[in-house]
């Protein structure tokens, strides 16, 4: 399944130590452009650590991270975003006391040099209003634009977070457990939203819900104890005896 074209996002020999304990060790990953790539594994396998390393929220102990072939291992998080790599968070991360509209507008603002123009009036932000409404509508939040994010129900907060992330127009979208803590209805809605968001983009997602993974992912990487255990399509990975033993064996709900 190794692609002929160079991967859009890759890491080689990635390692991260926490007080002598290697949370991630000798980890290689290659994400094909335009694909939906899922990162799965048992609790504590190091999935979120990999995310934090790739998005530069954590310094790496060893290894290299490449975005479109360029080394981004030493860049600060804010600079990685400008190169098109944008993440979401495990716990719904919204700006609680800003309206849904302002949550999206601040993401649009972040793309411009206006951030530093402290002498400008609030009406400068009106330039972003139409585009922000468009992003809100695309996740079904058109009627809730003026509601403070803190007042939205949980599933809607995740939808708002997705709209905010998409407003940054990322080339590579990193989603950290997008359906965590959701009811069945919300899971179906978010799955559909991700499928739409993935058009013309590359998605790398950490996800616990194997049904979501089976539905969405083109490629799956299985992580266990900080190392790569297997990689391939859902059908291939779910048949892998190593994976069954390490992960699906006690998962119970896996229809392998």
């Amino acid at each position: 399944m190794s692609a002929e074209t160079a991967p859009i996002l890759a890491c080689r020999g990635l390692r991260r130590d926490f007080r002598g304990f290697a949370a991630v060790e000798d980890f290689d990953l290659a994400v094909r452009e335009g694909s939906i790539h899922a990162l799965i594994g048992p609790n504590g396998a190091g999935k979120t650590t990999v995310f934090n390393l790739l998005t530069r929220f954590l310094p790496v102990s060893a290894g290299r991270i490449l975005l479109r072939g360029e080394d981004i291992t030493a860049l600060p998080a804010e600079r990685v975003v400008r190169r098109g790599l944008v993440r979401s968070f495990q716990i719904s991360a919204v700006f609680a006391h800003l309206s849904a509209l302002d949550n999206v507008r601040v993401a649009l603002l972040a793309r411009t040099g206006l951030v530093w123009q402290f002498w400008r009036a609030r009406s400068t932000l009106d330039a972003f209003t139409d585009e922000a409404h468009h992003h809100l509508a695309s996740v079904g939040l058109a009627d809730l634009a003026h509601t403070p994010a803190v007042a939205l129900p949980y599933g809607r907060k995740r939808a708002l977070e997705l709209a905010t992330t998409l407003a940054r127009d990322p080339a590579v979208l990193l989603l950290d457990e997008p359906t965590q803590g959701m009811g069945i209805e919300d899971v179906a809605r978010i799955t559909e939203l991700i499928r739409i968001a993935a058009r013309g983009r590359t998605v790398l997602m950490v996800e616990h819900n194997l049904k979501v993974v089976a539905t969405l992912a083109d490629t799956i990487t299985v992580l266990a104890r900080g190392r790569r255990l297997a990689e391939g399509s859902y059908a291939a990975v779910s048949q892998d005896p190593l994976v069954r033993e390490a992960y699906l064996g006690h998962g119970g709900d896996a229809h392998a």
């Binding site: 929220f57 991360a93 700006f95 006391h97 993401a107 951030v115």
Partner: peptide, 18 residues
Amino acid sequence: LALRSVQEHEPRARSLGL
């Protein structure tokens, strides 16, 4: 507005490139 978003959720603000 950018400052308020940093105050509300700094990691999120950074993840948007602020």
